[in-house]
C-alpha cells in the first residue's frame, strides 16, 4: 500500500486498483473543527479534479477534489454522525470515500510523503 498526495491536500491510499481518499493531517489542522461532510453517492464516477465531497468547518466550506479518475465504491457513513473523526484520525478512521481507480499509473503524477512534506513546509 502506498499513500500519495495532491497539491490540494487530498490523499489517496492505494491498494491495487482500490483507493481510499481523505484529507491530510495538515489540511484538517488548517480547517479547524470539521462539523459536516457532504459525501457523494456510491457508483458515481469522477475525473481528476472534479468536486467529490465537501467538508465544512464552522468558518469554511472546502471542496474535496478527486485525486485521480475514479468511481466511488463506498462512503464513510460514520462521518455523518461524527465528522470530528476527520480531525482526530484523518489518515485512518476519518477517511471520506473508497474508490476504484481507473488507471493506476495516474498515481505516479501525485506526491509521495516526502514530496508532500516539503510542499507544505
Amino acid at each position: 500500500m502506498t499513500v500519495k498526495y495532491t497539491e490540494d491536500h487530498e490523499y489517496v491510499r492505494q491498494n491495487g486498483s482500490d483507493g481510499t481518499v481523505g484529507i491530510s493531517s495538515y489540511a484538517q489542522e488548517q480547517l479547524g473543527d470539521i462539523v459536516f461532510v457532504e459525501l457523494p453517492a456510491v457508483g458515481n464516477s469522477y475525473k481528476k479534479g472534479d468536486e467529490i465531497a465537501v467538508v465544512e468547518s464552522v468558518k469554511a466550506a472546502s471542496e474535496i477534489y478527486a485525486p485521480v479518475d475514479c468511481t466511488v465504491t463506498e462512503i464513510n457513513e460514520v462521518l455523518n454522525g461524527d465528522p470530528g473523526l476527520i480531525n482526530t484520525d484523518p489518515m485512518g478512521e476519518g477517511w471520506l470515500v473508497k474508490v476504484t481507480i481507473d488507471d493506476e499509473s495516474a498515481l505516479a503524477g501525485l506526491m509521495d510523503e516526502a514530496a508532500y512534506q516539503s510542499h507544505i513546509a
Binding site: 464552522v58 468558518k59 466550506a61
Partner: peptide
C-alpha cells in the same frame, strides 16, 4: 450552519 451563507461560500 453559516457555511451555507454567501459570506463564506461566495459563489456556492
Amino acid at each position: 450552519l453559516s457555511t451555507r451563507e454567501q459570506h463564506i461560500r461566495r459563489e456556492k
